[in-house]
Nucleic acid binder design. Structure first.
Lengths: 343, 343
DNA sequence: AGGTAGAATGTAAGCGTTTTCATCAATGGA
DNA sequence: TCCATTGATGAAAACGCTTACATTCTACCT
């Protein structure tokens, strides 16, 4: 199995020679815009077709100093959240004739390197960074250099960077309020990793809901998690293994942990919402399948919005995008559909 | 918010002038390999660092006639299956210093265009095509032109293309045999969309299992689905609404439909495996959470293998890769763990 | 000291486009 | 008939890198 070398494809020069015109003319036809007489245009198009010519993008990028490519950098966590965002990005990008490069940041310290490699290296025209826990300094640099970057799910106060994010606070507040509305009083919260933006915001939302209901937070019911399914599983399992009484409800700050919690319950022969109500956050693909009540993040729309913002930034050199998308509570089975009396 | 033009970055020439050496030397340092005296190497590295130089990839690609980039083309279906494969691809690719471009094929007829645009356009060195229902002619062309392409989840008989696929037939056969081993006799199968490779192969596997057991297929128990959860739900619901007796077991040709079926059961106050055994296919994220017995597809590994094959193809110009990965039956709750007597 | 092999470095020709500027042809007005 | 004007085309210089080939050092041998 031998591979035909790429170099065997025709070049602009081939086409122009074939026709006895200049490469400039062919290039003009290729790029639509400029004035070329109709009949030469036709001849050129014909020749392009006959010779099976295709543009070389490396050369084009070099000459134009841009690639028509957007970079998307994923965090390493694999919640299924970001592949949904990617689809939204692709939707908008492909409509505007942009292509997509993707990379997954391995460690937190990767990012500045990745940004340098992709942006300054001229691989992409702009970058969409997904929920990276970037160092403060990095954000500041970015801002100062005015790089074409859009931050997803990570608004930065005061910094002049385009961002698309989620109203995590309101979302979490809604969820807790909903649970309170069902009559649940002992509500446990499984948090995400400390210092994570999402987790912190959502936790603030929880506190707000409790405060609004005039309730104090029971520190024993604030559990640490790390946004991975396993941690949800373990918190619940440890709790049950210790023989403690379940709370009325559990609000996991993302779906993965909520699902982990459900799994632990099942191992003990328990289930939601019969034995305890469960609510997650994000509405990942598995959530509807499991009947998990959750707070829906409009992931696809975040992707679309991010792509729009970046493209606008590239085209006009500026953008005011700092959108905060709203969430929406989705009541499925696990939060209990009816008013539940205090036990 | 203004964007700093990319052109403001330093070039190789800047570095060489700054040092009074030639661009060739700097390039050599950059590319490691060639012999450069240690002290000049140091000086160059120093200067590169001081000037904040970064390579321009468009120029590099143009000069070297390759991009160190792999293209990944996704089908439009969003089963979550392929983002898992993507991670496998990225794992291997990034280790070999390859970058990734992704595109989603919109329609079936897109593919030849996409391939041309990406490969011949010099955007990527090779392509990984995911489960595309490509026209026969396209595959033939591909083969003839010996393009660096790897087909995932879509083996092509006789064609000399590298492929990584799944033993769908054996997987389905195992599943059905397993159910038969449990003593179930009336086994319903929910198929995928007609003409889909996966669905057809899996169906063949079912037939084989029945044949091996010397059983005839009951056409009434062959239900049409479309790989979406909803179709599994509706088949079961219609069946129950019509007042018909449930079969002993239901084998859905993918997990989403199996989960839909479970949901329908639940609505009727029934559950698996008590009232009917259920088995799915793929082992998506939600499957373990629901205790769904299923046939596991090694998605990540398929991605890794595809990337390996493509890189090998690029490096050595050939590959014999035609791997068929085996599935593995995962018995969880829903297939019934013990021998069940014939009712 | 002279010569020479071999290592280190420099020179310059690509790679395939785009794009500015110059040229040329055609058209119309005086 | 000639010139100005406009529109179509061509010539050639980038774009920033790699690399074959040429040249210059260095160091070692006789």
């Amino acid at each position: 199995m031998n591979v035909k070398p790429t170099s065997s494809s025709r070049t602009l020069h081939d086409v122009s020679r074939h026709l006895g015109v200049s490469t400039a003319t062919v290039s003009r036809v290729l790029n639509g815009s400029d004035k070329v007489r109709q009949d030469t245009r036709d001849r050129v198009l014909r020749a392009i077709h006959d010779l099976g010519y295709t543009r070389n993008y490396a050369a084009r990028a070099l000459a134009r100093q841009r690639t028509d490519t957007l970079g998307v950098i994923f965090p390493n966590i694999d919640s299924g959240f970001f592949s949904e965002v990617l689809k939204g990005i692709h939707e908008v990008a492909s409509l505007a004739d942009f292509h997509l490069m993707v990379a997954f940041s391995r460690s937190t310290t990767d990012e500045p390197d990745l940004v340098g490699e992709y942006l300054q290296g001229g691989r992409v025209d702009g970058l969409i960074l997904m929920n990276l826990d970037m160092p403060e300094g990095f954000v500041r640099d970015t801002t100062r250099q005015r790089l074409p970057i859009v931050l997803v799910d990570r608004p930065v106060s005061g910094a002049e960077v385009a961002t698309v994010s989620l109203d995590n606070i309101a979302g979490a507040c809604d969820a807790v309020s909903h649970l309170l509305g069902h009559g649940y009083r002992r509500i446990a919260v499984i948090k995400g990793p400390d210092g994570t933006f999402d987790s912190e915001q959502r936790w603030i939302g929880c506190q707000r809901a409790f405060a609004q209901a005039g309730m104090a937070v029971d520190p024993e019911l604030v559990w640490d998690g790390d946004f991975h399914k396993r941690s949800g599983y373990e918190r619940v399992k440890m709790w049950l293994s210790a023989g403690k009484a379940l709370p009325d409800a559990i609000f996991a700050l993302n779906d993965a942990m909520a699902i982990g919690a459900m799994e632990a319950l099942r191992e003990f022969g328990l289930s939601a919402p019969q034995d305890v109500a469960i609510v997650g956050f994000d509405d990942i693909e598995a959530a509807p399948l499991l009947g998990l009540s959750t707070v829906r993040s409009p992931m696809r729309e975040m992707g679309r919005e991010a792509a729009r913002a970046l493209i606008e930034l590239l085209r006009s050199g500026e953008t005011r995008t700092n959108r905060v998308l709203t969430t929406c509570f989705v009541a499925r089975g696990t939060c209990g559909r009816h008013e539940t009396a205090d036990p």
